[in-house]
Simulated scan of single mutants.
Amino acid sequence: MTEQNFIPKPYGKHIESGVVAWESPSNIALIKYWGKKKDQIPENPSISFTLNSCKTITKVSFFKKNDVVNFEFDVFLDGKKKVDFKPKIQTFFERVEDYLPFLRNYKFKIETENTFPHSSGIASSASGMSALALCLMSIERDLLTPLEVTDEYFNQKASFLARLGSGSACRSIEGDIIVWGETKQIEGSSDLFGIKYPYKVHDNFKDYQDTILLVDKGEKQVSSTVGHNLMHNHPYAKNRFQQAHENFEKLKPILESGDLKAFIALVESEALTLHAMMMTSMPYFILMKPKTLEIINKIWKFRQDTGSNISFTLDAGANVHVLYPKNESFEVLEFIKNELVVYCQNGHYICDQIGMGAKKIN
């Protein structure tokens, strides 16, 4: 599969206007990717749980226009026009135009909303860009004959397009466990799009829970884009990329056997390695907050005292994703309410779990 596979044949249908809508979830990486090559290609493979409740709902209205010189679109977040979002969408349209040649033929109204705080490290770009990519794919599907767009092709191309908007967005199209990045450990894996994890997964990881502790709901001081770029010439980058490949080799038997202790060790190590890369780049930066560290230490103590299979992971931000099997939900949620909520901004946290991917809204 190459990029050429996603260039469509001439459109056989004519549409004057329409409306499409999708909801697409965020995802949380277990093996992280940090650092990318040209055209949003990852330096190392990653694997993620697709979330269920943390999602972006996007509606795209489109209207035929005569002028095909420029892209025309307006972006609204929670009903308010967001001019500052336009440069990112402009860049996205420029990147995907060869694969969606109808983009200059229409004016678009993009209306979007999140079920979680924007730009706070819960991968709003992943859910947002995947939802937009799915809306654009729905438009293209209507412009082509039905046999030209199978469900498999639709999902692959939506993931491919989403990646060009935000790398991790390619992992939000489907669920429940998604791999992105070519690795010999996973048959069918690709740098171009995410794929469903193709091997056996133990029941221990079915309905896995993720309670997100909102330590800081503000915008990150350093964007993920800037952070990825700092991996160029990073003194530890080569070793980190090799480590990610080695961790894939370790994760396969863990997912098959249901070994929760080994899962915890690998996932927490990956989270801390991600932030270690940030702290050792030049310039260096820290996205964790003091309360992030307090929560981690509390989780470690609770696990030691109770034997719980609670663990944590982090995205590129201060918030903590508390991971645990569903059968431990009562004990873990009591622990969160009694000991961890105090570290959350305004006491806010989100109870989520593994989900099965994006859904079209009729």
Rank of each mutant, 00 (worst) to 15 (best):
M1F: 11
T2C: 10
N5Y: 13
F6A: 12
P8F: 14
K13D: 01
H14A: 15
N27Q: 03
N27P: 05
A29N: 08
L30G: 06
L30Y: 12
I31H: 13
I31W: 12
W34K: 01
K36S: 13
I41F: 04
P42R: 00
P42T: 03
E43Q: 08
N44A: 10
P45W: 05
S46V: 01
F49Y: 10
T50Q: 05
L51W: 05
C54R: 07
T56C: 13
T56S: 14
T58M: 07
K64Q: 15
D67I: 01
V68F: 12
V69F: 11
D74I: 07
F76M: 02
D78T: 01
G79R: 02
K81D: 05
K81T: 03
V83D: 12
D84T: 09
P87Y: 09
P87F: 11
I89S: 11
F92D: 06
F93K: 00
E97C: 07
E97D: 15
E97H: 12
D98W: 04
Y99L: 00
N105E: 15
F108E: 15
F108C: 15
I110W: 15
E111V: 09
E113V: 06
T115V: 10
G121Q: 06
A123G: 11
A126L: 00
G128E: 10
S130Q: 05
S130N: 11
L134E: 14
R141N: 15
D142W: 09
T145L: 13
P146K: 05
Y153Q: 03
F154P: 06
K157E: 11
S159T: 07
L161Y: 14
R163F: 10
L164T: 09
G165K: 00
G165M: 04
S166E: 10
S168R: 01
C170R: 01
R171I: 00
W180H: 08
T183K: 00
S189C: 08
F193L: 03
K196A: 00
Y197T: 11
P198E: 08
Y199L: 09
H202Q: 07
F205K: 06
K206F: 14
V222G: 12
V226A: 13
G227N: 02
N229D: 05
H232W: 05
P235V: 14
P235G: 12
K238M: 13
Q242V: 08
Q243K: 03
A244N: 04
F248T: 13
E249C: 02
L251S: 15
P253H: 07
I254C: 13
G258T: 03
G258E: 01
F263A: 07
I264G: 04
A265P: 02
S269W: 06
S269P: 02
A271I: 03
L272D: 05
T273C: 06
M277Y: 02
M279L: 11
P283W: 09
P283Y: 09
Y284E: 08
Y284L: 07
I286M: 09
L287M: 03
P290A: 06
T292F: 08
L293V: 14
I296G: 04
W300E: 15
R303K: 11
R303I: 02
Q304E: 05
D305P: 01
T306Y: 01
N309V: 03
T313S: 04
L323V: 10
Y324K: 06
E328S: 14
V332E: 08
L333G: 02
E334C: 02
E334Q: 07
F335G: 05
I336R: 01
K337D: 12
Q345H: 10
Y349M: 12
I350A: 10
D352H: 04
D352E: 05
Q353E: 02
G355F: 02
K359C: 15
N362D: 13
